[in-house]
């Protein structure tokens, strides 16, 4: 099932609130697709990720902002499933942090192995501009695999 134009179906939103395992698909300079494992946090209708400002994926999406994000369960989950978001990636300005760090409720999904130290280290790298926030507002949403 594919949903287009701004309305994210409740089943997809519920899934995104509970899962962070994300594969970001970008286009390489030679035009071929490439795929990067990421942590994606869903908040206010958009998916947020952070990465190094000088990384290949940032160069890729600055050149070609169209991306796909495949958010999935663990491979061995009782029901393997996921949500595919397609849309345009935006880089937030250098120094910008995740939107919920200054206002609003933080996403509820847990990141494996993440603790307060890791959170502070990422926040410091964002403040220095070494890392940047990538925001993807979905234009197309699909459910894949098994869903309850």
């Amino acid at each position: 099932m594919t949903y287009v134009a701004g309305v994210i179906p409740p089943a997809a939103e519920e899934f995104l609130h509970g899962h962070t395992r994300t594969f970001l698909v970008t286009v390489r300079p030679d035009g071929a697709p490439t795929c990067h494992p990421m942590v994606g946090m869903y908040h206010g209708g958009a998916l947020y990720m952070t990465t190094y400002r000088k990384s290949a994926k940032v160069r890729n999406l600055a050149r070609e902002p169209r991306v796909a994000c495949v958010v999935v369960t663990a491979d061995d989950a009782p029901r393997f499933g996921g949500v595919v978001l397609r849309g345009r990636a935006e880089l937030l300005p250098p120094g910008a942090t995740m939107p919920w760090s200054t206002r609003g409720a933080a996403p509820t999904a847990r990141v494996p192995g993440a603790d307060a130290d890791l959170g502070r280290a990422v926040a410091a790298k964002l403040a220095e501009g070494k890392r940047v926030v990538v925001r993807v507002v979905p234009e197309e949403v699909r459910l894949v695999g098994e869903h309850a």
Binding site: V25, P33, T34, C35, R66, V70, F80, V84, R86, V144
Partner: peptide
């Protein structure tokens, strides 16, 4: 591994992905 994410390009050259 039993599952991979497979990434491709659509007719407009935009990326897509699927398990």
């Amino acid at each position: 591994k039993r599952i991979a994410i497979v990434a491709t390009l659509d007719a407009d050259g935009a990326p897509d992905g699927e398990p």
